[in-house]
Structure formats: structure tokens, C-alpha cells
Write a protein that binds this DNA or RNA. Structure first.
Length: 882
RNA sequence: GGGGGAUUAGCUCAGUUGGCUAGAGCGCUAGAUUUGCAUUCUAGAGGUCAUCGGUUCGACUCCGAUAUUCUCCA
């Protein structure tokens, strides 16, 4: 039975469309979702809210082209402030990846319009019963000097009776971006999704902001009007903004009259495919015992998260965002492995279905579907292997009184990647339990260690003069002699202060698009300040320095280290040529998956399903070198409208965020044309020589090439040449070095064998003599003498052979190697037992005569020393022992 | 970025507190069995114990560095 008065017939796709259309009608520009992987903001691994891509507008670093914007944004909440990962699957509403519908005003409309439109969209366009809607507004905070948000309340009173407008506290109704930065009061819209009977029993008003109560928050309208400083105080912003966010999945749930997002048409196709492939039926239960149902939700959710992040270019890895992707994927594996009885790669089989469902709205999925499936399958395989190893390690774990040591469980988890919940599960199966406290202690210790290391405190920006938008002039100039510092701040890293400086205009290229930041100097009123790196936070170029200028408001001469920049530019151009060459040699599928351009080398990752052959790599290298020799001039076009760029067929990448106008870098229109913000050389000839250093596999379906150009390449080749020349010299100027070395190796092998034979023969002769020297003492065959063999292994062999022939024997051999004395003692096993002789003990004792020590087992021991003069005494002493 | 582990034959791995002539299974080569194949049996080849340095009479084993790799945390 539908739980709402109405049930919308709209599909998820139609609901999304309705939202965007509505705001388009209100004069909003509809923009595409930015990538789910956040590459521009070091404080954020993933996009976790719709406003992320507009952060610069709120911070005043940039002015927007349109003051009204709306979109649907792919978001992920798995780390930091919002972490929903462990809740996914347990209930019907939490997700790692979700879509956030949002509309924004940048210094344009404010509370009146925002609230009015929210109301109209929900009630008129989407048809939600007005009777079921509640709103909350900020109650005010006297300690902050922020009054109650009566403005918002006044607007709401136009649509809602007073009893359905609630006051909320700072936690629910005051929104902050982070510790510092833009913030303000917000108004939340809640919808009562309960049945009529339940509504009659309990007033919905009492259930607002209570989890799982049936009254759910669907939309938050934030009114940004303050800026939070590092000391905790608030200041008014010059311009006021609106930032809203409405969870798409939740909206669909309400409109379609469902109790869980998993029951909407966003998820039902995924769940039914999981049913089909796993053989389990989805019961939709949230009971703790309904493990399979939970597992299916986990798999459905994580599948989306993993597929979308990979589509946006984030591969699973062991650091940063990639590690988060890996963790999500592994959580899915854990659940299907434990609760769906699936023991082989499974997620990747769901990709074609996912692409069918979502590929139209998100083309990045459709176009890379094979690749995504391949990568996921590879990850699944390797984790299943890890699980396998962990299982056998678990079997070796000892349990005291049925309790598995916490430290041991932690080691299994930390070092071998075996999930703690699996350890728990396995322990339970054997009627054991895990020492949870011990585990938690160990985990906390590790977290503290990592945090202590990463300790970093960021101070407020301190404005110097006017806060104007920073202009990058580094494409055309390497020096600016009339720059000014606009602001700076102190960043403390591991107790050491460092400073970040922003200029009004700068030739410094901040690290972005895989290209390393510039180095150089800032000269402020004659004082030279080295810039050791340049970074970018969103669109802000930040110069990293170790000290601040004496006069921060002075005139700045900003000078980029030209040699370093040139070498970096050469390698960036090389990356473009390599990219194009890979397309030509391997095919169009070989697209860039990441790059790291530095002054010493370029590292280029691309998609390709198999190891390129040596011939293919050679052809790639040859082709790039051919393009270098052609000395192709750079064609740089700035401010090209994005539509025109698309039209031109220039290379664009998934997971990159492109603005309205872009820059196109072309080297031979027939060969290489890419959207790119990096720096390049004016002619390809400047690269001189291109040399591939290595080719390796990075993940399933991803290869990595490292290469060098210019001086670095030349140095490399020269180095190799020098070695070759030297080698040839050593080989008496051999014409064929390879053949010479091979024959040397061969000869060496034969000589070794021959030497061994000779040694054996020598020992054989000696053996004959020694056999003659056998004395019988106390009924034991004794040999105790010096031999003229230096090699320990040979003596060992000989002694073993002697023993074999004599039967019961006590054999003590003295020898010298490089003037160092050595003793070898062998006592037949029977004698060690019947006469209680211990070769190790004896040899330790008699080794004193040669000023040495030794040891071994009862039947064989060796000793060495420093005084060869005592050898005879040692042998005599040894004899006494029989 | 910080911790922990691993690196031994072509492959997968054993190797107990430093001292047995460093092993197993699979694979490889040869022979035997068999009409042939599979099977089985026998013999054999194959190792700078990742690299470099240190401690020690002696290091696969202990210590340090490097490389590669797995894993956890940030």
C-alpha cells in the first residue's frame, strides 16, 4: 500500500529531469556534474556535496559567469566529516555514492526566492501533499551573535502554518563548510512519509530530526552570509549566497511511495540482477539476521560507488582516494563472500546491467564499461587471494581459553589485510571470540601514529592590500616585476612553519593536470625568497616559501626557475606526443589515465588490456622521435568555447573538470590535439630525443610508461654508452659484446664445475691417506690431523665421506684459510648417544686454543679462530675427549 | 606521508633458538612402463637464498640501508 496520499508515476529519470527543468525556467544555468573524484581541492578526496565545485565563488577567489546555477552532482560520502560507509546496507537510506540535486545563487537571490521555489517545486511540480511538509529554521545563537532566522520564517509562513515551522539548533540549522570559511543558517524541508493511521497516532511535528521516524529530511537550503575565521569568530560576507542540496535517491523514494531508496527504480534493476547471479532472493528485510538482504544492498550500493569513481579516473590503489575506492570494493567482496556464498569475482559481472540503467545519464560509464569491468575484476581477484591467505593464517592463530588475542587479530588485519569482521565470523564458527579491546587499542595506536605524522595546522589568510583575483601570466612570461602579495598564511607542518603566498599576478605554474609546480624566487624589496614549490587550491595559485618577506606589502619580482620550467615543459609536450603515438600504434582505446610530469621524467598511465610488445613500444618511441625531428610548432588556442573544442575533436578526458572555455594544445592537427592547462615548448624539436625508460602494469587494464626527453634522455643514453664502451674495453674491444659475455659466463660455469671436480679429487686422495692414519682410542676410530685444504665446503664433504666409510668415527680436521685457523669435527650419531659426546660442545672448548669460538650440532660442528699457532694444541685437546 | 609484513628452483611455497652438503609439490629433460595417449615409476638438470653493507669463528636465519611488492592507517 502506498504510504503517501499520492504516489508519483514518475521514474527516477523523469524526476531528475523535472528538477533541472524547473530551475532552468527560473533563469538558472544547468551545469554538468563535476567529477566525483576531487582533484583540485587538497582538503577533499571526493566530491561530497553539490557546492564543492563552486567553493571558489563562495570564497571570493573567482567570480561566476552565471549568478544562478543548478545541477545534479555525483557525490560520495566515505571519509572525513561525512562518513556513511559502515551504515550502508544496515538501513534503507544510507549510500556511499549518491546524486545531489542543487540550485545556487551567487550574490543573487536569497531567502525569499529560494524558499518559494522549493515549495513550488515540491508541491506543484512534484505533487507532494502540502500537509505532509515541515520546515525548520535556525533558532539563533547568542554566543555567536547570530539572531534567530526570522527572515526565513516569514517566508515559510506564506505556505505553512506556524506549527509546522520548527526551530532548530546549531547542529541542524547552521551550516559550515569546514573549520573555517563561508557559513550561515539553513532551513531544512522534511516530509512525513508515514501511513495515515500512524500520522493520526503521532504528530509528525514531534518526529522531525529523529532518525528512522518516517519523517525524513529531503532538502536543505543554506543561506551563506558569514565567514568563520580560525579564531572562531564570524564576519559578514560582502555578498550573500544560496546553496541547496536535495538527495536524489531519497526524493525518488518519497515520490514513489517507498520505504527505502533500495526499493526505487534506481536500485531494483541492480538488486534483481544480483538475485539472478547469486541465486539468493532479495527479501527487503532489515533484521540483523537477514544477512543476505543486507549483503545485496551493500553490493548494490558499492557497485555504483566503485564504477563511478573508476569512470572518473580514480583507480583503486593503496593511498589517498584510490585507497578509499579499494576499501569500498573490498567491503562489497566481504559481504558477498560471507553472506551470498559467492567465492569468485562477482561485481564486475554487474557492470553491463549498470551501464544499461545509468549509461544514458552518465556517458562516462558507457564509454569505459569494458575497462571498468576489467579493473574491478582484477581487484576482486587479488582481494579474494588475500582472503585465501588470511584464512590459512587464521587457522594458525592460537586461542587462549577460546579468546583470540587482539594484537594477533590486528596483525592479521593490519599486515595481511584480513578484515576484522571476517576474523570475528570465523571465530564464532569455532565457538571462539576475539579480544575486541586489544584490537581497538592496537588500531587506535596506529591511527595516532599516522595522525601525529600528518599533523598540520593551517592559519587564516592574512590580506595584504586589496584582495583581487589572481592572474596567471606564466604561459607568456617567466618573470613579473610588478607583482604584489594579496594574501598569505602560515601552515605548520610537523612543527615547522611554512608559508603560503598568493600574488595578484604570477608567472608560477601551480601543480595541476599532472604537471609539477614551478620553483623560483620572489624578490620583495631586494630580499630574495626562494619558492620551493607552487601548488593550486581550486583555482588559487599558492607559492610555498620557508620564510616571509620583511615587507609583505612591497613590490614583488616573481621569477620562475627557467631551466626547471623548460625541462618540465619538454616532458609535458612529450606526454602529448606519447599519447598520440599510443593512439596510432595501439589504438584509440589507449587513453590517458593519469600522468606525472616533472623536469626529470614523465610518467604516463593509459588504458590497454595487454602488455605492449617490444616492437609496439619501439614503434611508439620511433613515432615520437619522428615528430620531434619534424620540429612541429606549437599551436596554442586559449579561451575556446567548450562546445567548439568538442566539435574540433580535441582529446578530452573523463574525470577532468572543464570550464566553459578551454585551452587547446596542438602539435600537428593531424596528430596531437588536447585540452590542456599545462606548459609546453614552442617547437617539438626542443625535446631533442625521446627515450622510453620502462613499461609496466599498474592495474588490470592499465599500463604505465616512464620516459625522458631532452638533456635527461641524452644523459641516460650517454650513461648507457659509457658502460658499453667500458665493457668493450674490458673485453679487449670485442666486436660482439653480448656474445663475449655469454661465452665468458659459459666458461665460468665450466671452470666452476671442473674446480669442484678437482677439489673432490684432492679430497679423495687425502681421504685415502687419512684412512691410513686412523687410530683406535677407547674402541673408537679416530682421525685427528691437519689438512692442506682451505675450502670449508670441501672439508665438510670429505669428512662426511670419511665417516660413511669408517662407520663409528670421531673425525677432527684442522685447516687454514688466509692465515685463519679452522676446525671441523664430526662424530658419528651412534657415538654421540652411546658415549654422550657433543661435537658442538667439544669444539667450543678446544677452539680456545686458536682464540676462537664455534658450535654446531652434536654430530657435526665447526669453529674458527685468530691464532693458527694453536691448531696442533687444539687437535691434541680434541683427541683427549674421546 | 607514517607503521607492519614479504622477497629461497621456471611456478606455488617449507626451512624450528645463527651451525644438518638449502628442501617439497607442480613444471622441465631423459629413461622405463604403454600399440599410442593419459597414468605410474626411476634418474637428472635447475638456486649469487632480492641487492649492498654490518655483527659473528660461522648468516637463508640477527642488525642497517636500498629496491620491489603486499597490507593497514592518515
Amino acid at each position: 500500500m502506498p504510504l503517501l496520499k499520492f504516489v508519483s508515476r514518475m521514474t527516477a529519470n523523469e524526476i531528475r529531469r523535472a528538477y533541472l527543468d524547473f530551475f532552468s525556467e527560473q533563469g538558472h544555468k544547468i551545469v554538468p556534474s563535476s567529477p566525483i573524484v576531487n582533484k583540485n581541492d587538497p582538503t577533499l578526496l571526493f566530491t561530497n556535496a553539490g557546492m564543492n565545485q563552486f567553493k571558489d565563488f563562495f570564497l571570493g577567489n573567482k567570480t561566476p559567469d552565471s549568478r544562478r546555477v543548478a545541477d545534479t552532482q555525483k557525490c560520495m560520502r566515505v571519509s572525513g566529516k561525512h562518513n556513511d560507509l559502515e551504515d550502508v546496507g544496515r538501513d534503507g537510506t544510507h549510500h556511499t555514492m549518491f546524486e545531489m540535486l542543487g540550485n545556487w545563487s551567487f550574490g543573487d537571490y536569497f531567502k525569499e526566492e529560494a524558499i518559494t521555489w522549493s515549495w513550488k517545486l515540491l508541491t506543484e511540480r512534484l505533487g507532494i501533499d502540502p500537509e505532509l511538509i515541515y520546515a525548520t529554521v535556525f533558532e539563533g545563537a547568542s554566543e555567536e551573535g547570530v539572531p534567530r532566522d526570522d527572515e526565513a520564517k516569514q517566508v515559510w509562513l506564506k505556505f505553512l502554518p506556524e506549527e509546522r515551522i520548527l526551530l532548530g539548533n546549531k547542529k541542524d540549522n547552521f551550516w559550515e563548510m569546514g573549520e573555517t570559511g563561508p557559513c550561515g543558517p539553513c532551513t531544512e524541508i522534511h516530509v512525513d512519509t508515514r501511513s495515515r493511521e500512524e500520522r493520526l497516532k503521532v504528530n509528525g511535528r514531534d518526529l522531525v530530526n529523529i532518525d528512522d521516524s518516517g519523517v525524513v529530511e529531503i532538502w536543505n537550503n543554506v543561506f551563506i552570509q558569514f565567514n568563520r575565521l580560525a579564531d572562531g569568530s564570524l564576519e559578514n560576507l560582502p555578498e550573500r549566497h544560496v546553496d541547496t542540496g536535495m538527495g536524489f535517491e531519497r526524493l525518488c523514494m518519497i515520490l514513489q511511495g517507498k520505504q527505502a531508496t533500495y526499493d526505487t527504480d534506481i536500485f531494483t534493476p541492480i538488486l534483481s540482477q544480483i538475485e539472478e547471479l547469486s541465486g539468493h532472493k532479495y527479501g527487503g528485510s532489515y533484521a540483523t539476521e537477514a544477512k543476505a538482504d543486507m549483503a545485496m544492498r551493500v553490493v548494490a550500493d558499492h557497485l555504483r560507488a566503485v564504477a563511478f569513481t573508476i569512470a572518473d579516473g580514480q583507480l583503486p590503489s593503496n593511498t589517498g582516494a584510490g585507497y578509499v575506492v579499494r576499501r569500498i570494493l573490498r567491503r562489497a567482496v566481504r559481504y558477498y563472500f560471507s553472506f551470498l556464498d559467492v567465492k569468485s569475482p562477482f561485481l564486475f559481472k554487474l557492470i553491463p546491467m549498470l551501464v544499461n540503467e545509468m549509461g544514458a545519464a552518465f556517458p562516462e560509464l558507457a564509454q569505459q564499461k569494458d575497462q571498468i569491468a576489467k579493473i574491478i575484476e582484477g581487484e576482486e581477484k587479488s582481494f579474494l587471494q588475500t582472503l585465501d591467505k588470511g584464512l590459512s593464517r587464521f587457522a594458525d592463530l592460537e586461542a587462549k581459553d577460546g579468546v583470540i588475542d587482539g594484537a594477533a587479530a590486528f596483525e592479521l588485519y593490519d599486515t595481511f589485510g584480513f578484515p576484522i569482521d571476517l576474523t570475528r565470523l570465523l571465530a564464532e564458527e569455532q565457538g571462539k571470540r576475539v579480544d575486541e579491546a586489544g584490537f581497538e587499542t592496537a588500531l587506535k595506536a596506529q591511527k595516532d601514529r599516522s595522525k601525529a605524522d600528518a599533523a598540520k595546522s593551517v592559519g587564516d589568510w592574512i590580506s595584504v592590500g586589496e584582495d583581487v583575483e589572481s592572474v596567471f601570466i606564466g604561459y607568456d612570461q617567466l618573470e613579473a616585476d610588478d607583482a604584489r602579495i594579496t594574501k598569505y598564511r602560515t601552515v605548520e607542518l610537523k612543527g615547522k612553519p611554512q608559508y603560503q603566498v598568493v600574488l595578484d599576478r604570477t608567472p608560477f605554474y601551480g601543480e595541476s593536470g599532472g604537471q609539477a609546480g614551478d620553483k623560483g624566487t620572489l624578490t620583495v624589496d631586494g630580499e630574495d625568497i626562494p619558492v620551493y614549490d607552487t601548488q593550486k587550491e581550486n583555482d588559487l595559485t599558492i607559492h610555498l616559501v620557508k620564510k616571509l618577506p620583511e615587507t609583505p606589502d612591497g613590490l614583488v619580482i616573481a621569477k620562475v626557475h627557467a631551466g626547471n620550467r623548460q625541462a618540465t615543459s619538454q616532458h609535458h609536450t612529450a606526454a602529448h606526443l606519447l599519447h598520440a603515438a599510443l593512439h596510432e600504434v595501439l589504438g584509440k582505446h589507449a587513453v590517458q589515465k593519469g600522468q606525472d610530469v616533472r623536469s626529470k621524467r614523465v610518467r604516463f598511465d593509459f588504458s590497454h588490456f595487454e602488455r605492449p610488445s617490444t616492437e609496439e613500444l619501439q614503434r611508439v618511441e620511433d613515432l615520437v622521435n619522428e615528430k620531434i625531428r619534424q620540429n612541429i610548432p606549437l599551436i596554442e588556442r586559449r579561451d575556446v568555447p567548450i562546445a567548439e573544442a568538442k566539435e574540433s575533436g580535441a582529446m578530452m578526458l573523463f574525470g577532468e573538470k572543464y570550464g566553459d572555455s578551454v585551452r587547446i594544445i596542438t602539435f600537428d592537427p593531424e596528430f596531437s590535439s588536447e585540452l590542456c592547462g599545462g606548459t609546453h615548448v614552442p617547437h617539438t624539436g626542443e625535446l631533442g630525443l625521446f627515450k622510453i625508460d620502462s613499461e609496466s602494469s599498474l592495474a588490470a587494464g592499465i599500463r604505465r610508461i616512464e620516459a625522458v626527453v631532452g638533456e635527461v634522455a641524452l644523459a641516460k643514453v650517454n650513461g648507457e654508452m659509457d658502460t658499453l664502451v667500458e665493457l668493450r674495453g674490458l673485453l679487449k674491444n670485442s666486436q660482439d659484446v653480448v656474445k663475449s659475455v655469454a661465452s665468458l659466463q659459459d666458461e665460468n660455469r665450466q671452470l666452476k664445475k671442473e674446480l669442484e671436480k678437482l677439489k673432490a679429487a684432492q679430497a679423495g686422495n687425502l681421504k685415502g691417506e687419512l684412512l691410513k692414519s686412523v687410530e683406535v682410542i677407547n674402541g673408537v676410530n679416530v682421525i685427528a690431523t691437519r689438512v692442506d685444504i682451505s675450502d670449508a665446503a670441501t672439508i665438510k664433504t670429505m669428512v662426511f665421506n670419511l665417516e660413511k666409510e669408517l662407520g663409528d668415527a670421531f673425525i677432527l680436521i684442522g685447516s687454514e684459510n688466509d692465515g685463519k685457523p679452522m676446525l671441523t669435527l664430526s662424530i658419528s650419531k651412534e657415538l654421540t648417544e652411546s658415549k654422550e659426546l657433543h661435537a658442538g660442545n667439544i669444539i667450543r672448548e678446544i677452539a680456545r686454543n686458536i682464540k676462537g669460538g664455534g658450535g654446531g650440532q652434536p654430530f657435526f660442528a665447526t669453529a674458527g679462530g685468530k691464532d693458527a699457532g694453536g691448531l696442533d694444541a687444539a687437535i691434541a685437546a680434541g683427541k683427549e675427549k674421546v
